[in-house]
Simulated assay, not measured.
Amino acid sequence: MQTKSILLLIGGALGLFVLGLLVPEWLSYLMIIAMGKGIVVLGVVLLMRAGLVSFGQGLYYCIGAYVAGTLTQFAGISDVLLILLASIAASVLVAALVGLLLCRYRGIFFAMFSMAFSMILYGLLVRSSVLGSTDGFNVLRPSLLGWVPSDDASSDLVLAVAVVMVMILGSLMWLYFRSLSGYAGEAVRENEIRVEYLGTSVFRIIYTKYLIAAALAGIGGTVTALVSGHVDPEMAYWTTSGEFVFIALMGGTSHVAAPMVGAGLFELLRTYAFAIAPYTWQMILGSTLLLIIIFLPSGLWSLVSRFSRQARG
């Protein structure tokens, strides 16, 4: 069953790559943005499965983006592999320090404290003239192992990177969700005291998941920065973190593909909602989420699970 699911994930990601090459440029751009945000939401889902809702993943999303921008703009490093490694390292390093405090809290305290750290970064970036203050700065075109693509091929390179990240991270997270460590998060959500009685550290379980979620957010921020060619402090603002929670609720938490589905629908819905109602597009998004919560409380992926059960039956 695990092998079949992983193969489906890989096949779906390859299908996205082919589709991204065939569709118009604007739609390919939305697909890459959706994959970048979907990777971030995968970390949000990881925390939600442990009973934690983070409104501060914008912190690591922004760190990953700014690392990509800083390396290409100021350090002369454009290799996408080095940028990804640096983004992961920076995100995990910050998370290792922040998590020592944050992972001791639960419920609304975890949500608000996570948002507070994200807003601290936002405030620092707004006041940093070196990093462009509120305007941010541009991210130069990435390269791969010495190959510098043309302007037209640059987006294809980022598309390929995004697809590879979705394949690798999706497969790894699928295996992790079904490991003892993955199920430990659900045990913590149900009853922390019993988990402690079994001789397992609840803090270590939460701390590990927080580090993984930070790494995923850093990767997602890097992908977004490379395809958009620009970074700004809004990436750390609380509304950005709210988007990730919004997407997680839309897609559901029962499968690693759910964040990608939710992110894709979110980007399409926001694009067309803004085109139809540029001053009230938030109402369309809010109404959509409300309908999903009422009729599909487990998210959009519950439809896939329902159809699969009916097909097997």
Rank of each mutant, 00 (worst) to 15 (best):
I6T: 02
L9T: 09
G12M: 13
A13W: 10
L14H: 07
G15A: 15
F17E: 11
F17A: 04
F17M: 15
L19E: 05
G20Q: 12
W26L: 02
W26A: 06
Y29V: 02
L30K: 14
G36T: 08
K37C: 13
L42M: 15
V44I: 06
V45A: 11
M48K: 10
R49H: 08
G51V: 15
F55Y: 04
Q57S: 14
G58A: 13
Y60P: 05
Y61L: 15
C62Y: 00
I63R: 04
F74Y: 10
A75Y: 15
A75W: 10
S78M: 10
I88G: 09
S91P: 08
L93S: 14
L97G: 12
G99V: 12
L100Y: 03
L100R: 15
L101S: 04
C103M: 14
C103Q: 07
R104D: 08
Y105S: 12
R106S: 13
F109C: 00
F110K: 03
M115N: 15
A116Y: 06
I120T: 13
G123L: 02
L124H: 14
V126N: 09
G132N: 12
G136Q: 01
V148I: 14
V148C: 11
D151M: 14
A153K: 09
S155M: 10
D156I: 05
V163C: 03
M165K: 08
V166F: 04
I168H: 01
L169Y: 03
W174F: 09
F177R: 10
L180V: 13
L180C: 02
L180T: 13
S181F: 09
Y183R: 12
E186K: 12
E186W: 05
I193D: 00
I193Y: 11
V195T: 01
L198P: 05
G199K: 11
G199A: 06
G199D: 05
R204Q: 10
I205A: 06
I206N: 07
I206V: 09
Y210N: 11
Y210Q: 06
L211P: 08
L211K: 03
I212Q: 08
A215S: 12
A217S: 11
G218H: 11
G220R: 07
G221P: 06
G221H: 08
T222W: 09
T222R: 05
T222P: 04
V231G: 09
V231W: 04
E234Y: 08
Y237R: 01
Y237W: 01
S241V: 01
S241P: 11
G242S: 12
F244S: 03
I247S: 12
I247D: 09
G251H: 02
A257V: 14
M260R: 08
A263D: 10
F266C: 01
F266D: 03
L268S: 13
Y272D: 01
A277D: 01
Y279T: 00
T280G: 00
T280L: 00
I284M: 01
T288I: 01
L291D: 02
I292L: 02
G299S: 12
L300V: 03
V304K: 03
F307Y: 06
R312V: 13
